[in-house]
Simulated assay, not measured.
Amino acid sequence: MVKFMHEGIEEQEGNLQEEELEFALAALDDSLPEVENPLQEINLGIEEDPRPTFISTLLEELVKNEIIALLHDFKDCFAWHYHEMPGLDRGLVEHKLPIKEGYLPVKQVRRRMSMET
């Protein structure tokens, strides 16, 4: 149990409001949530040049087999390496952070997301 003091509406009267909150320490809350949709790895390449992709294990067996067959039929439509995409402008695939000379990038604090959302 941790007590926090914060300034609330009563601040105008010179009082501080006290609250007791229960919480898990952020350092102890590093567990990953259970995966809701487990994935199955499908290799569309060969052993020397693997080309992994993933499909849901929750699919019906008939649908899963049809998707796997479709992926194998159209595996030449996917690119796993940059050299497989000739003519593609690098500006579309490269991330750049334009910072004016003489300035430092703004460093923001890490924001933790709720595990429930």
Rank of each mutant, 00 (worst) to 15 (best):
E20G: 12
L25Y: 08
K96F: 04
F23Y: 13
I68P: 03
P52L: 08
E47Y: 08
P98G: 00
L16K: 13
M85L: 04
E11V: 15
P38D: 00
E66Q: 09
E84Y: 01
G8F: 02
I55C: 02
P86D: 02
E18C: 03
I67E: 11
L70R: 03
Y103P: 13
E22R: 03
G87F: 01
E94L: 02
K75S: 06
D30M: 15
I42N: 06
Y103W: 15
F78N: 00
R90Q: 13
M5W: 09
I67G: 05
V106I: 10
E34C: 04
K3I: 11
N65S: 12
L32E: 11
P98S: 04
H81A: 01
F54N: 07
R110N: 06
T53A: 13
D89H: 02
N43Q: 02
A26S: 08
L71Q: 05
I42M: 01
L92H: 10
R51H: 09
I55R: 01
L39Q: 03
G8A: 06
I55G: 06
I99E: 00
M113D: 11
L92A: 09
I46C: 09
E94A: 07
P33I: 00
A27F: 10
E22F: 05
T117N: 15
I42S: 07
A27W: 15
L62V: 07
L16R: 15
L16G: 14
D76A: 00
L71F: 07
H6Q: 11
A24W: 13
G87H: 03
E22P: 02
K75A: 05
K107H: 09
L59Y: 07
L59Q: 01
P52V: 11
Q17L: 13
L97I: 08
Q108M: 14
I67H: 12
E13S: 10
K75N: 10
V63F: 04
V93R: 03
A69Y: 05
P33E: 07
V35N: 06
L104G: 01
S114I: 08
E10L: 10
L71V: 04
L21W: 12
L88N: 06
M113N: 15
K75Q: 03
E60P: 08
E48D: 10
H72F: 06
C77I: 10
I9Q: 12
F4R: 12
L21P: 02
G87T: 11
Y82D: 14
E10R: 13
E20I: 07
E101D: 04
V2Q: 06
E36Y: 10
L88Q: 11
K107W: 04
E60W: 04
E48W: 00
G102Q: 04
Q108V: 14
E84K: 01
P52C: 06
E22N: 07
G14A: 05
I67L: 03
P86R: 05
C77E: 12
I42Q: 01
Y103R: 15
L97K: 11
E34W: 06
L16V: 14
K96I: 00
E94M: 06
E66I: 08
G91N: 05
L104R: 08
P38E: 00
R111Q: 08
L58N: 05
N65L: 12
E36H: 10
